[in-house]
């Protein structure tokens, strides 16, 4: 038989067990298999009751984030061979309530995300007849990195502040706020600042930097947050020194 590797998969079936427990599965160690392929193999051949989220299997949809050997990872981009000879421990994303097996509850994140208005805010929309809002490549460059976020929530599972303070708005939401703040077509900076300059916003961050380290899309949320902090402080000084000036 071909080489295999053991997956220790966290199971939680609320009707059956009071707390999560590990179950071992041996899967073929194929060179081109990622952890998600192994989970699909388990579901198809070994135990159809295993629950987990996935969709695109190509690092775009952001639904397959899980803890792999204690690190938040996109399981569709994490190769089994990197962990040879195993075992590989697969757990649901840290700090989120577990619904079932590897599926976590993310409503809390969704409401935090919505709070920062991650869309283009205009004081006034110009009529369609005037055409589209134009943008130069350099203007695009200002926020492009932050726009790569796929809401996989690996950064939340990496951030100790998220773990300790459930009210903290979190890395991805701030990075996405910054994505729109830096967009030349947007006019919603101040509305977002109202939410983000709170204690649970940018000031909750202690610049631990784990979010940036684990981000599978190189978004650098930690950088976004620190840049935001500097901006908040300079704005505050400006309004102190020149109260008549426009923010």
């Amino acid at each position: 038989m071909a080489k295999t590797i053991t997956l220790e998969v966290a199971r939680y079936r609320p009707e059956q067990e009071g707390e999560p427990a590990f179950e071992n599965f041996d899967v073929p160690l194929n060179k081109d298999w990622v952890v998600l392929d192994a989970l699909n193999y388990i579901k198809d051949k070994l135990d159809g009751s295993l629950s987990y989220r996935w969709s695109c299997r190509m690092g775009v949809c952001g639904s397959c984030g899980m803890m792999v050997n204690g690190e938040p990872k996109l399981t569709c981009a994490t190769f089994l061979t990197a962990y040879d000879p195993g075992p590989i421990r697969v757990e649901p994303l840290r700090y989120f309530p577990i619904v079932r097996d590897l599926v976590v509850e993310i409503t809390d994140f969704m409401s935090k995300l919505k709070a920062v208005k991650p869309w283009i805010v205009r004081d006034e929309e110009k009529p369609i007849s005037e055409g589209e809002y134009l943008q130069t490549p350099r203007q695009l460059d200002n926020f492009k990195q932050f726009s790569m976020c796929i809401n996989c929530l690996c950064c939340y599972a990496a951030c100790p502040v998220v773990g300790l303070d459930q009210h903290f708005i979190g890395p991805a939401a701030i990075a996405l706020a910054q994505r729109y703040n830096e967009d030349s077509r947007d006019q919603g900076k101040e509305e977002r600042m109202d939410v983000l300059s709170q204690h649970d916003g940018i000031w909750g961050c202690t610049f631990n930097g784990e979010c940036t380290r684990v981000c599978p899309k190189n978004v650098d949320p930690a950088g976004a947050i620190q840049q935001y902090k500097i901006k908040a402080v300079t704005d505050w000084y400006k309004s102190l020194l020149m109260p008549w000036g426009k923010k």
Binding site: Y12, P14, E15, E19, P20, R94, Y95, F96, P97, I98, V99, E105, T107, D108, S111, K112, A115, P160, G163, L164, Q166, H167, I169, D200
Partner: peptide, 25 residues
């Protein structure tokens, strides 16, 4: 944020893990 996920009505079965005081060790 006003909303909290520490307790959610009607979902007593979600499993919530506590962060240990010694997480940093």
């Amino acid at each position: 944020m006003k909303q909290s996920h520490a307790y959610t009505l009607y979902h007593p079965k979600w499993y919530r893990r506590r962060v240990s005081t010694w997480w940093w060790t």
